[in-house]
């Protein structure tokens, strides 16, 4: 056993924290899927009919927009988890 046993590991608080985390993950990963596989691949032809700032929208998502969205997603997750960990008292800070 290399990881210290956490006395409160299996208690209700931890379980609720984990459920909230998984819910948040589901939400953020849906956005992850929508901007890349959705806008950049599956619906690219439809979105390409719209043109903004010299870019066909589908093409823009595939080569620029999805990458920007990925960065935002990670920082949103970091911020939300910070709040969640404080709320459940499981923060390491």
């Amino acid at each position: 056993m290399t990881v210290e046993k956490n006395p409160q590991s299996a208690d209700a608080n931890s379980t609720r924290y984990w459920r909230e985390n998984v819910k948040l993950l589901g939400l953020l990963l849906s956005v992850w899927f929508a901007v890349s596989f959705g806008a950049g691949i599956l619906f690219v032809d439809v979105l390409n009919k719209i043109e903004i700032g010299g870019f066909k929208l589908g093409f823009w998502f595939a080569q620029q927009g999805s990458i920007v969205a990925f960065v935002i997603l990670i920082f949103v997750y970091t911020a939300r988890m910070h709040v969640l960990e404080k709320r459940f008292g499981v923060s390491d800070e």
Partner: peptide, 20 residues
């Protein structure tokens, strides 16, 4: 456009890494 697989593939993995 075909090269988008590399652009999205090699960056989108970091979302999985950070979240999962």
């Amino acid at each position: 456009y075909d090269a988008s697989v590399y652009l999205m593939g090699w960056t989108g993995g970091y979302v999985l890494l950070a979240l999962l």
